Simulated assay, not measured.
Amino acid sequence: MEQIAAALGDTARWRIVELLAERPRSVGELAESTGLRQPQTTKHLQSLARAGLVTVFPLGQRRVYALESAPLRSLEQRLHGLIETIDAHSDERDVLARYRAAIESESELANRERWADGRAFTFERTLPAAPDTVWHYWIEPELLESWWAPTTMTITDCRIEPRPGGDAVLEYLDADGRRYRSQGRVHTALEPEHLVFDLSVLDAAGAVSFTGNYDLTLTAAPEGTRLRLDLTITDTAVEAVPYIAGIEAGWSQVLDNLINTITIEKEVQP
């Protein structure tokens, strides 16, 4: 398949393929129609033949080339599969587009320190598990690690110690190996319904980019648990633009991860 794609990647060869799609032609005809010299045309035909795209028919002193449809149909199927995959994951492209727009918008506001202080967000979800189960997904490191980062990230340290003064830490690597760390303290931990903590996002030098103040409530519901997460921003540095811009999409994604993780766990339990 790579050989077919490479053969079709040349403009001159693509024009030859278009001409042969109409009918078989000789080297001389192809050279005249493309404006190439015959030796050049012959070399292009040889490349197409090696890729299985054309067949040569010796007819006495003439050599006539015909296009083969089977390799093109195989390429069509591969391309169709790619298109279906792109369409199936179009929401991820949309997230990137919204994130870029958010960065541009936030950049216009970030002209001073603490420019986003007081910014508030609220996230709500209904989860298919009892509050005590959901609680454990927040305070047990192995369970927390299973959902508490976008899927493209690798968590290297995460914990929320469910006691006043306990550590709150999230550290992960992106696909390029860059490290991101957030750390803070737990203020309230009332199992299994209320968890309050803060997390300061640190830059490469260890300085605070911004602090997120989180208030999590879990309420029993007929469907399982209603989750509400309130987030307020403080200590905002000018350089925090990409972090602030990604809060809405990032937390929406990881909370969806939490729902999916709990749902899958329920399905595999005997």
Results as ranks from 00 to 15, higher is better:
V186C: 09
D157R: 04
P131V: 08
P131E: 06
R25A: 14
L195V: 07
Q46L: 14
T225Q: 07
Q253L: 14
S90T: 12
Y137D: 05
G184I: 03
D235R: 15
R179D: 02
E140V: 10
A66D: 11
Q46P: 02
E22N: 02
E124F: 00
L72D: 10
G184Y: 03
A149C: 10
Q40F: 03
E171S: 14
E191H: 11
D87K: 14
L143A: 13
E267T: 10
D10C: 03
I4C: 00
T55A: 15
P242A: 06
N111V: 11
H80T: 14
P128C: 07
L173S: 08
D215W: 06
D157V: 00
L19R: 05
R181F: 06
T122F: 01
S47H: 12
L59E: 15
K266F: 01
H187L: 11
D230F: 03
G81R: 15
P39F: 08
A7I: 01
V186T: 14
L190W: 01
V238E: 13
M153E: 03
P192W: 07
P192T: 05
N111D: 09
T11R: 13
I160N: 04
S107P: 04
G212E: 10
I262S: 08
I83P: 00
T236Q: 06
D117I: 01
